[in-house]
């Protein structure tokens, strides 16, 4: 095990009590236990409070634009499959702005970890509804309440054969560390959603609210994460009962292995010699 202090980053700008703090701590713990060195890790983020995560951690970082972390992360993996790549983004970012890339990532199955911090709100822009806000959530833009039901990202992931789907809760640090470790060691796209209370703008979905509802899915007598239909039913559960744990697993070939071009090693720093005469001869 490596010392968790190895990953100490700059001082954070999050609100006191923010669900991101226990996530940061648990993530460092998981990295330390798995002995992933900062130099071998790239964190990719986009826009939102959760996207500041990589700055508060010592590692390689690419903090890009709203909704586009997955394309950047996939590009990094294709250029250098020896790097451990983790995307840390929020619900508004990935489920709203970046929805198309989420669908494509399910299909591609790149070998990376996608962590979505789900606080059911846009916190950085001060409290607007997000794609996962519950129906009826009131904010400045929806004084009558959000008129339609939330997205079910985990059910979507199961329906699209995402190769690993799980959920955890920021209020359960040990569960969180274990889930990070499972996601980080999965080969293929590991999609981990973390319920992450926003203490400033979301007065409904609080630590208390989640604590009353979450249950560990592995305790179910019918637990069958390889069974697609079972996983779909569980992934759709939301409200009085919210499942956490590994919900779906489906081993699939990874994107990187579909490119024979990568068999010779990473593209990173590679400058191939190409036969000009041969290239031109095709046109004579």
């Amino acid at each position: 095990m490596l010392p968790p202090e190895l990953y100490a980053g700059i001082e954070s700008a999050w609100c006191p009590g923010c669900g991101n703090f226990p996530m940061l701590k648990a993530f460092k713990q998981a990295l330390a236990e798995l002995e992933i060195r900062p130099q071998d890790l790239v964190l990719v983020s986009a826009i939102g409070q959760s996207s500041k995560f990589p700055h508060y951690l010592k590692c390689n970082t690419f903090n890009g634009i709203h909704g586009r972390a997955l394309p950047v992360a996939t590009g990094i993996r294709l250029a250098n499959p020896t790097l451990k790549v983790v995307v840390t983004v929020g619900d508004g970012d990935q489920y709203g702005e970046g929805g198309n890339h989420l669908l494509a990532a399910f299909r591609r199955n790149p070998d990376l970890t996608l962590v979505v911090h789900n606080n059911q709100i846009y916190a950085l822009t001060k409290g607007q509804a997000s794609p996962t806000s519950d129906q009826g959530t009131k904010d400045l833009l929806h004084p009558q309440g959000v008129p339609y039901p939330p997205l079910h990202p985990l059910a979507l992931a199961v329906a699209q054969d995402c190769s690993w789907v799980g959920r955890s809760f920021a209020g359960m640090p040990q569960h969180l560390t274990e889930m990070y470790k499972k996601a980080l060691t999965h080969k293929g796209l590991a999609f981990l959603e973390v319920l992450q209370p926003c203490v400033t703008f979301n007065k409904v979905n609080t630590y208390e609210w989640y604590r009353k509802r979450v249950y560990e899915v592995e305790t179910r007598p019918d637990y069958a994460p390889e069974d697609e239909l079972w996983a779909y039913r569980v992934a759709k559960e939301w409200g009085e009962q919210i499942p956490i744990g590994v919900i779906f697993r489906k081993p699939r070939p990874i994107l990187e292995e579909s490119f024979p071009q990568l068999a010779a090693g990473p593209l990173a720093g590679r400058l191939p010699e190409r036969p000009l005469a041969e290239l031109l001869a095709e046109f004579s």
């Binding site: 890009g64 586009r68 590009g75 990094i76 494509a104 593209l267 990173a268």
Partner: peptide, 14 residues
């Protein structure tokens, strides 16, 4: 996606 993916690949050294 196309441009962001190319930026990611270039950042990593392709």
């Amino acid at each position: 996606c196309a441009i962001n993916m190319a930026i990611g690949a270039s950042y990593a050294g392709a």
